[in-house]
């Protein structure tokens, strides 16, 4: 590994100015669990490494009533897994966090890192997409908020400009009678990277047994994490029925565009999207009924 020049900015501003100064030659280190592997395998050889780890105030989970949820970009995955704020309405986030890699990785890896690395299989993306999350970026040109849906461009590629950092993840408030479920399908168990990741968030109109709002997001089955919008539209406003859920699962599967790789064939992945979506919607429904 190396050599590189190493920086530890104390503030976001300092980090941004370093990014501006060193541009493409610089890489940001948050938890380091992806970056160090890439450097070790000599996939990337950055000349400058900027560790954000010493910047204070970017590690938080704030629950703010009507305004929703804000997560500091440097919050570790383990922090999310354990956060008391994520035990009810936003349980799907801690659920996904608990499925990400190993405990030793989760203790270092950050939510910002997981999203900015933009792996199609990133475990944190589907639940945050299904919760209609957005990310707050800051750079020389100032701050901007980008819906997560628009943040991912391709495998490893995002809308982040070379001089920008992600500082916060924002999730709108969750209405009553909402439940969410993330299911990760691996080569075996939940170990390793996702072969398929499915997040479903369902808001229920309890009186009429109608899907008031449905959001479905998928990981590892397209160049970026995606939403299954046709399936969402199919369910929204409709009376809940097993047949309809099955249909939505099929449509979700059609919306995915997986490839063959070492973790599974496209055909198997499409099938698992169907199976896991069906399960995730039903699981989310059950939770929605209970809250």
């Amino acid at each position: 590994m190396g050599p590189f020049e190493y920086f530890e900015p104390a503030t976001v501003e300092e980090a941004v100015s370093l990014l501006k100064k060193y541009g493409e030659g610089a890489k940001i280190l948050a938890g380091g669990t992806d970056l160090v592997v890439m450097m070790r395998e000599r996939e990337i050889k950055p000349r400058y490494v900027i560790n954000l780890g010493r910047i204070a105030g970017l590690n938080y989970v704030h629950l703010d009533g009507d305004k929703g949820l804000r997560i500091g970009a440097l919050t570790t995955i383990a922090g999310l897994e354990r956060a008391p704020e994520l035990k009810s309405s936003y349980r799907i986030i801690s659920q996904a966090a608990a499925r990400l890699a190993t405990i030793a990785i989760r203790n270092m890896a950050t939510i910002g890192g997981n999203l900015c690395n933009a792996a199609p299989s990133a475990d944190m993306a589907p639940p945050l997409l299904a919760l209609k999350g957005a990310v707050k970026l800051t750079g020389t040109a100032g701050e901007r908020i980008v819906p997560l849906e628009e943040f991912f461009i391709g495998p490893g590629v995002t809308t982040l400009k070379p001089d920008e950092l992600m500082i916060e993840i924002q999730v709108p408030a969750v209405p009553a009678h909402t439940g969410g479920m993330y299911l990760k399908h691996g080569v075996k168990g939940a170990a390793g990277l996702a072969v398929v990741g499915v997040a479903a968030v369902v808001t229920l109109d309890i009186r009429d047994s109608v899907f008031e709002e449905v959001d479905i997001a998928l990981g590892a089955v397209a160049p970026t994490p995606i939403r299954a919008k046709r399936a969402e539209a199919l369910l929204k406003g409709q009376k809940i029925s097993d047949g309809l859920i099955e249909e939505a699962a099929r449509v979700t599967s059609d919306e995915s565009s997986p490839i063959d790789d070492v973790r599974g064939s496209a055909e198997y992945r499409r099938e698992m999207v169907r199976v896991r979506t069906w399960e995730a919607i039903r699981g989310a429904l059950k939770l929605a009924k209970s809250v």
Partner: peptide, 11 residues
């Protein structure tokens, strides 16, 4: 060992 998986405690 990310993509060549061996048996873990959970298997």
């Amino acid at each position: 060992l990310r993509d060549y998986l061996v048996t873990t405690f959970q298997d």
